[in-house]
Each structure stands twice: as structure tokens, then as C-alpha cells.
């Protein structure tokens, strides 16, 4: 079973459906993918190069824009993808600036 899959054929990211360990190698759509880190269920992996500023497509719709050049196989998450609407709140958010 492929541990990565696309929800919609239009997507430029795969979704992890079973934990991928760091260093694990697999062939996906004929390309070799080696994971640089452990990726849990639900995380996203670039299915192709996504240049800075281009939209990331999941479910067949844009879910935000790349904040850096993303390469095939990169983990796509808070460090390289931002909302086109509302900034994402995480526990690192500082309400009071020191």
C-alpha cells in the first residue's frame, strides 16, 4: 500500500496515510522519494516543485501559497505554506511582545 496518496488528481501535494519514518525511501508515481523526517498521518508532501508564491492544491482547491521554493518530496507545512486568508495561530504565537 502506498503510504502517500492524492485526495484529488489536481493536487500538487500527497497526504500521508501511514506514518513515514525518517530516511524511509519509496517510489511514488514512478519517482523515488526519501523522507528527511518522520511524517505522521495527515501531513503533506510536495508531489512536484511548487515555486515561491504559487498555490498549494489539496482537495482540488488552493489551500494557501508557498512561502519558499518547495521541491518534490518536501514536507509542506507551516514553514513553507501560508494561508491566503487568515494567519494560522500556533502555540508559538507571542501575544505580548517582549
Amino acid at each position: 500500500m502506498d503510504k502517500l496518496f492524492k485526495i484529488n488528481p489536481l493536487d500538487n501535494v500527497y497526504v500521508v496515510r501511514q506514518t513515514v519514518e525518517e530516511g524511509e525511501t519509496m517510489v511514488i508515481d514512478g519517482r523515488v522519494f526519501t523522507s528527511k523526517k518522520t511524517l505522521g498521518l495527515g501531513h503533506k508532501v510536495a508531489a512536484c516543485a511548487i515555486p515561491f508564491g504559487k498555490q498549494v492544491i489539496k482537495f482540488g482547491i488552493p489551500i494557501g501559497s508557498a512561502t519558499e521554493d518547495i521541491r518534490f518530496g518536501d514536507h509542506v507545512h507551516l514553514h513553507n505554506l501560508k494561508s491566503d486568508y487568515i494567519p494560522t495561530y500556533t502555540l508559538d504565537h507571542e501575544f505580548i511582545k517582549p
Binding site: 500521508v16 498521518l41 491566503d84
Partner: peptide, 19 residues
């Protein structure tokens, strides 16, 4: 959007919305 959503692999509000 809660921080736990990001742990589960969601990155943006529109992504969560679409789910």
C-alpha cells in the same frame, strides 16, 4: 483553527475548511 489541527498535519484555515 486550533494548534492541534497543525499537529494533525493541517496548515491553513482554508485547508481545514475544505476538509
Amino acid at each position: 483553527f486550533a494548534p492541534g489541527n497543525a499537529e494533525g498535519g493541517l496548515t491553513t484555515l482554508e485547508e481545514k475548511s475544505m476538509g
